[in-house]
Amino acid sequence: MRIPAVLLSRPVRIGVPGAVLAVFLLIAPSSFDGYGISLMSKALALGVLAVSVSILAGYSGLPTMGQAAPFLVGAYTAGVMSTHGHTVGVLQLLCGTLVAAAFAAATGLVAIRTRGVAFLMTTLALGELTVTAAGEWRSLTGGTDGMYGITPIQPLPGMAALSSDRSIYWFVLTATAIVIAVVWWVLRSPVGKLLLACRDHEARMRSAGHPVTRYQWLAYVAAGALAGFGGVLMCTVNAYVSPDDGSFSNSALVLLAVVLGGATSPLGALLGAGLIVATQDWLSGPFPGHGPLLLGLMFIVAVYALPDGVAGIRFRAPKRRGGPA
């Protein structure tokens, strides 16, 4: 029953599920209606947020409970741009990402000083403050009723506005694919190894002269930027933004998506987000009001049945017991 070595090689372990997912994302929409497609778009936007959490929680050892805050900042940036007539999607993505990065750069100065549970709680506090501010700053955000009836975007200047769920999906998929590819490329470079080294051997890295705090601040800013990118996509999908998009429960759900997906796997984080959307919005359809119950059961089952996350079980070779490490 030995698994042939070739099946455990890195290209196969990542390539095969990646290819399956890619094929699914490309062909599934042709058999879905607008509702199913918009759920897939939502899962992708939430997936980008989950990947940003995996950079923090997985690669940097900084489990965050407030990553919905830069997500919210990105979504509002897109909403505000739309109400002022700036409806070019690429431009919204750029601005949303930059504003969220600036937001993370500022809040990061505070958050990054803390570790462990203190980091968890600081990010939670920052997230709650952001949600409160979004509700109170009515002249900009429209208050707790949110920004609604947001004008559909044009992907590039001169292109037609995206009027259907299907065209929005292709835009969201393209944007997600590009940004995930970039994240993947960066994390596979020495940057990723540096982050992991700082996570696992902070003291050793410091004494070797690495400015660990600055690295982690940069990771925080990059994760914030990515979350903002996801927020812009979510604004495009829902044509609606409200403070609730930045809620504690959103932050907690994506953290759980990352745990489900296996902490350091962008692909796993995307899958985790997909599972959450499928459970919360689709599976719960016949049981209105019991979405939280289904999510709860999923988490309980996941904890016992998938100790390494949905992605981990496929990506990791079986451990050899008793042999040399």
Partner: peptide, 14 residues
Amino acid sequence: DEANGGAAAVPVAK
């Protein structure tokens, strides 16, 4: 179910 209201109701309505 509109849950907390707002975005949660978008997929429900669709």
